[in-house]
Design a binder for these strands. Structure first.
Lengths: 327, 327
DNA sequence: CTGAAAGCGCTTACAG
DNA sequence: CTGAAAGCGCTTACAG
């Protein structure tokens, strides 16, 4: 392994000068610069990040804390984070938290010992001490808690209004809203968006609360549909629960979209694989991850943030679970 | 930040003794041990991994190199790797390669500078110099290349035979096999398994080669089905392409499973969300990732490996895209 | 069994 | 603009 010492020797300067050259700080004369540049190239020198970290107490590691990469919403987010991290020379550590504060704390503690640069976190525990006391840059994704940490999220409220309107415009008059977990801010925002839009509309509606889970959604919807056969529209606040609703409808022999229209929320790729393809309010998941990563890196590098709250627009993707608009 | 020096002072011993105690190597007297233990507890001391790494030229980082976390096969694998890594005190770095050798090389190079412990890699490039010359433990997943690197994979051949037999047993006599990319070993093994089983069976068959991609599979199957309406069974060598086949069938108004039965391969969770639910040859994806992680950690810690080639069994999960067995 | 000392490969005041 | 030197927080022969 060639070290900064080897480079210094070959270039005929001190290691301090090489270090200054490498870091682009401090003064380095043109001559020295050239000599070092040549030596670096000739020796194929690459800096030892560990040694550097020990001095600077920083590393180019960033931590991505999310509930479970197995949840179809997260892989695309992780991909985006990794892509931009790579661009800026950072490396990402994957941390599945299972929404468990103990696991989250364990990660933040362990990684601080590695002088990790900062965290992107998707969690409901953002006000827990291991985050508030962390003294490291962090950016929240998807789930806002308070003003103190920068956040990027979708416009969930507007998205829900969009989906609701879509159902209404397509003639639905007995709508079931599948509401997500009450401890999730995005789910609550979607609920509010739905309520705001349905309010005053010429339609009946019901709300069912449940997790963003396929089987449970399927069962929930199946029994609801049995009890309320007049239901002609379902707005699920996640694609996975929409898939559950669709499956329930199929099981009951209900024609989608003729007799029942379904709209999901998220825009995960599974949506198009269903039959019929799932109409959904799509988040720009990749964009969310990319923006969050860029924000975090700015924070790490002490650059100013233009905004501490970034909202990514949402759009309706119309596929087979809805009919054409009635005029 | 409290350092080993603080602990030494408080315990009234030298830093060398504290270090020995911490690493459990070298002799430490009972008395010294107690004193250090107490000091560590009292000061809430935790070792600085970066400083340690600089000395040992090792870290408890492991790299997971995979094509794209966005491909539904990989998240569960990543989850398993992370789970066992955590158990052993390791941390995983996520690397999306896009099957691009340049990106892979870049990761292995960059991470070596961080004294990464080793890699778990899913790649077709295992014989590229950046792997063969790496001088670091690596374990291959899913795709074997040669004897030199330990590998864990599914019994793809047997799995394919299993799926083929399932179609035959259920009365299929005109079978389409959706073969995956020819550069993928697992895909080839599945092809061989299919051929071995179909050979001599009282059935016609065709083979279509294509990527494990939803839309392309859908298009491929749609035109095939138009040209060959007598097709009564499709065995796709991935769940995603099976989903494409199912969608094509729906589009053409073909009754699945009455007139056409479909079996996939992989066992990803999307399978159950389809309607009807996808019958599939399921790999134990989590187990594969877990075994690979355990193997890698053994390698990193210089423990003997019982086996350099681990094959994880595969099983048929029967859902709605197949009928009951004809007797 | 234990400690002083050198060393891992960098960075950063400081003096010149 | 540059170099000598101390230091980041550990580990590890080596001598005792």
């Amino acid at each position: 392994m060639t070290t900064i010492r080897d480079v210094a020797k070959k270039a005929g300067v001190s290691v301090a000068t090489v270090s200054r050259y490498l870091n682009g700080n401090g003064y380095v004369s043109k001559d020295a610069e050239k000599a070092v540049e040549a030596a670096v190239k000739e020796l194929d020198y690459e800096i030892n990040q560990v040694a550097r970290s020990l001095n600077t107490k920083k590393s180019n590691l960033i931590g991505l804390i999310l509930p479970d990469i197995t949840n179809p919403f997260f892989p695309e987010l992780a991909r985006a984070v990794e892509d931009v991290a790579l661009t800026y020379g950072y490396t990402v550590i994957l941390c599945n938290s299972d929404e468990n504060p103990e696991k989250e704390r364990n990660y933040t503690e362990q990684l601080k010992k590695k002088y990790i640069g900062g965290f992107i976190v998707i969690s409901n525990q953002l006000d827990a001490p291991h985050y508030t006391d962390i003294k490291l840059p962090i950016v929240a994704l998807d789930r806002a808690i308070n003003e103190s940490v920068p956040i990027v999220s979708s416009n969930n409220r507007e998205g829900a209004a969009l989906g609701t309107r879509a159902l209404l415009d397509r003639g639905c008059r007995n709508i079931l809203f599948l509401r997500g977990p009450e401890e999730l801010n995005p789910a609550n925002d979607r609920y509010e968006g739905f309520m705001a839009e349905i309010d005053g509309a010429d339609a009946h509606f019901s709300v069912l609360t449940g997790p963003f889970h396929f089987e449970e959604s399927e069962e929930l919807v199946e029994s609801f549909l049995k009890a309320h056969p007049e239901t002609d529209g379902i707005f699920a606040s996640s694609d996975v629960s929409a898939a559950g609703a669709l499956k329930a409808a199929h099981k009951l022999g209900i024609d989608v979209p003729e007799d029942l229209q379904i709209i999901g929320f998220d825009g995960i790729s599974m949506g198009e694989m269903l039959s019929p393809g799932l109409t959904t309010v799509a988040q720009d998941i990749y964009e969310m991850g990319a923006v969050a990563a860029r924000m975090l890196i700015k924070l790490i590098e002490n650059q100013p943030l233009e905004e501490r709250f970034h909202e990514v627009p949402v759009k309706l993707i119309v596929r087979g679970t809805t009919r054409s608009v009635r005029t």
